[in-house]
Every structure is written in C-alpha cells, then in structure tokens.
Computed example of a mutant assay.
Amino acid sequence: MRSRVRGGTAAAVLGALLVAGCGDDGAGTASRAGRADAAAHPVTVTDCKGAETTFRRSPEKIVTSNAAALELLLRLGVGDKVIGTGFPPGKGTFPAGLDAQAQQVKVLSKTVIPKEKLLGSGADLYIDTFSAMKMGGGTGDAPTEKEFEAAGIEHIYLKSTACAARRSSPMTDLSAVEDDITALGKVTGTEDRAEKLVRGMRKKVDAVQKAVGSTPERERPTYFFFDYDAGTKQPTAVCDKQVGNAVINQAGARNIFADCDGAFKKVGWEDVISRNPEWIQLAVRNRGSEAADEKAFDEARKWLETNPATKGLTAVKKDRFLRIHSERTTIAGVTNADTVEKIAATLHPGKVD
C-alpha cells in the first residue's frame, strides 16, 4: 500500500477514510476557519485501491470534475476555493442559495476537462467523480498520477460513485454518500457543516426506514428508473452498485435491475417488459426552469405511452409515474435523501408523509 505525505496542499478521497485529529466549528470567519483547519489536520485518507495519503492543511484551489462535487463544496461553505469545474450545472439547476455562486465558477469544460487544461489549472486538488466509470470517452487521455504529482495536484475521488467497480457488495444505503460528505468536511475544515448535512440526511432516511424499512422484499413495489436523457433506443439500467439503487432500496421499493452487477448497464426493452415495473421514474436532467422540466417530463411520459414496446407496462397503464430529476437519484449528494422521501411517500401513501 502506497503512503504519501503532502505538506503544501491538501486533499481527500471522499469516503471510507482514515482520519486523524478533530475539527472546530467551521463557522466561516477567517479566524474560525483557520482554527478548524489546524485542529482537523493532519488528515490521512485512502483512495479506491486503499492507498493512503496524509495532508497537513486544507486545499486552497480546487477543481471539480462535475457538478456533484461542486455542489457539496458549496453546501460546505468553501465554494470560494473552487477555481474551475467540468460538467457545469445549468443555470437554475442548483437551489437558489447555491445557484448564483455556482454560476461564478469558471467552466474548464462542458464535459470532461481536457488533460492539458486540468494540469495547467493551478489547482492543488482535483475531485474526480468518475474514475472507473470511464466518463472520458473520446475526450482525450486523463492525466497519470505522476503527471498530477508533477503539477502539484492531488487527485482524489468521490468514492460513492467513482469506486463502484471495486465494491464487493451492492449499494443498498446512503452510508457511502455520507462518508463522502464527512471526509470532505474533514479536509476543508468544515466538519460541523458536514456533520449537520449528514444528520439532516439521516433524519429523513431514518423516518422512511421506520415506516417501510421492514417491508419484505416480495411486498415492495417494483421500480424502474427510466433515464430518458440517456436515450430511448436502448434503456440504461441502474445497477446494484449505483447510488440510485441505494435510493430506491431505502425508499421501500425494488429496483427491477438490482440483479445487474455494476453501476450502469445498457439493457433491452424486452428486459424491462419481462420485469414489468409497477412504478416508473421519469428521470430527466434538470433543465434550469420549471417549464422546461415539465416539458421534458411530459416528453418522457408520452414516449412510454405511445411506444408499442412499453405502453402495455403495468406502470404505464396505471399512470404510475414519478417526476424526479435524474441527478437527485444517481449522483451522490444531500438531495439523495430528499429523493428517498419523495419515492417512499408516493409508493407508500399513508405510511410516509
């Protein structure tokens, strides 16, 4: 196992970590932030392979691979340290309190950040949401770890999403997401804020679990996450090691593709038909306005209702649709708990408010 100590920069692989020290109150003033940082560090964290890295202070210039890590940093109150991002959030896609700040972050790429631009960004920390998900496609080679090191950039991951391929068991709860938030709080000296976010998530999910968590598997409604934006020619299944599987499970439902090993997988409509879901989530990406969102949801529904292969599904015939943005389900974040609540309240009326 590799072990490194970096004194000039800071980073963390977000989740399943080893931590030394304890934080202060992370209150936001310069003096308090400084005390929190000093108290929280040094911090030792691990990556997807278990390699350890120790950091003596928190990062000052952060680049995020996409909007997921960016939103977490904004919620922790360190958005001023983010100097760039890939896959930027569209205007209006973040909550009102975060959106204006998010729009001020420099966009290094609308998709995967090119290698040269990332290495030359001046960052001391790059938070990678993808890793083994291989989101780069044809956008060019990702930097090697030696190249990151030469540029003075720590390369770390949101483990709840990036390390899916290395999980030995299905993701059935949100503990990995909570670990990501806790770890990021440790690294940035905002432990109290991170703990508050995690407590809020747990309060919501625990209430749902108290109401429907004991429902036997065979009695749980079957559920299909219809990723409309991923294309309709061949549906994309949310598999057992994806955050969405945990969200669906915690809501007291059965993911019809929970037997699929991995994060995402292209399947056939015949597979969906044979499993005949009782409920379907119309999962579309946030368009930035309520009107645009509703139009996209309507399009997804109309496609299911008019397509010969899907119009006979139980969920379609019984008008059992949920309109929930895909990001709130399959991208790790605080809103995963809100999605658990919404799904549970819809599928289990009278048991969950």
Score class of each variant (00 low, 15 high):
Ala292Ser: 11
Asp37Glu: 15
Gly140Leu: 07
Glu149Lys: 14
Lys342Asp: 09
Gly50Ala: 02
Gly312Gln: 08
Gly140Met: 03
Ile113Cys: 03
Thr9Glu: 08
Pro235Cys: 01
Pro143Phe: 00
Lys115His: 11
Lys295Ile: 03
Asn245Phe: 10
Gly152Pro: 11
Ala132Asn: 06
Gly185Phe: 05
Ser168Tyr: 04
Cys22Leu: 09
Leu118His: 04
Leu119Asn: 04
Asn276Arg: 04
Asp229Gln: 00
Lys318Ala: 13
Ala102Tyr: 13
Arg4Phe: 08
Ala165Ile: 08
Leu18Met: 06
Leu70Ser: 03
Asp206Gly: 10
Thr139Phe: 13
Ser169Asn: 11
Asp37Thr: 13
Lys81Phe: 08
Trp269Thr: 05
Val177Gly: 08
Gly90Lys: 14
His325Arg: 09
Ala258Ile: 09
Val272Met: 03
Arg167Asn: 08
Pro308His: 14
Lys196Thr: 15
Ala68Arg: 00
Gly86Lys: 08
Ala337Gly: 11
Ala16Gly: 07
Glu71Ile: 10
Gly90Ile: 13
Glu294Leu: 08
Ala67Gly: 02
Ala10Arg: 05
Asn276Val: 06
His155Ile: 10
Asp47Glu: 10
Ser326Ala: 15
Leu14Asn: 13
Ala164Gln: 07
Gly50Met: 02
Gly97His: 09
Ala12Trp: 12
Arg275Gln: 05
Leu313Gly: 12
Gly200Val: 07
Lys146Pro: 01
Glu178Phe: 12
Thr232Ser: 00
Phe148Trp: 15
Lys159Gln: 15
Glu294Met: 09
Val105Ser: 13
Leu184Lys: 04
Arg287Thr: 05
Phe225Asn: 03
Asn245Cys: 14
Ala16Ile: 09
Ala51Leu: 10
Arg275Tyr: 04
Ser274Thr: 11
Val105Asp: 09
Ala183Glu: 13
His41Trp: 02
Ile113Gly: 03
Asp173Ser: 11
Val238Met: 12
Leu158Trp: 05
Arg254Tyr: 05
Val107Pro: 12
Pro170Val: 08
Glu327Ile: 11
Tyr157Lys: 02
Asn286Ala: 11
Leu282Phe: 02
Gly28Met: 06
Gly50Leu: 01
Gly50Asn: 03
Arg320Thr: 01
Arg2Phe: 07
Asp229Met: 00
Thr44Arg: 09
Asp319Asn: 15
Pro308Met: 14
Trp269Asp: 02
Gly137Gln: 06
Ala253Met: 02
Lys159Pro: 07
Thr139Cys: 11
Gly185Leu: 07
Tyr228Glu: 00
Glu341Asn: 12
Ser289Trp: 04
Thr188Ile: 07
Ala11Arg: 00
Arg218Gln: 10
Ile343Asn: 00
Cys48His: 09
Asn255Gln: 00
Thr139Glu: 13
Ser168Phe: 07
Leu108Thr: 04
His348Asp: 12
Thr310Val: 14
Glu149Trp: 07
Arg32Asn: 15
Glu60Leu: 06
Arg220Gly: 09
Thr44Met: 07
Gly252Ile: 13
Val247Tyr: 01
Ala151Thr: 06
Asp24Phe: 06
Ala38Asn: 06
Thr139His: 10
Val177Trp: 06
Phe224Leu: 01
Glu278Cys: 10
Gln242Asp: 15
Leu304Pro: 07
Glu299Ile: 00
Phe87Trp: 15
Thr161Cys: 13
Thr182Tyr: 08
Ile83Val: 15
Arg166Cys: 09
Asp338Glu: 11
Ala164Thr: 10
Lys233Leu: 01
Thr53Val: 12
Val43Met: 12
Asn249Pro: 05
Ala36Met: 04
Gly333His: 13
Ser31Ala: 15
Val205Thr: 14
His41Ile: 02
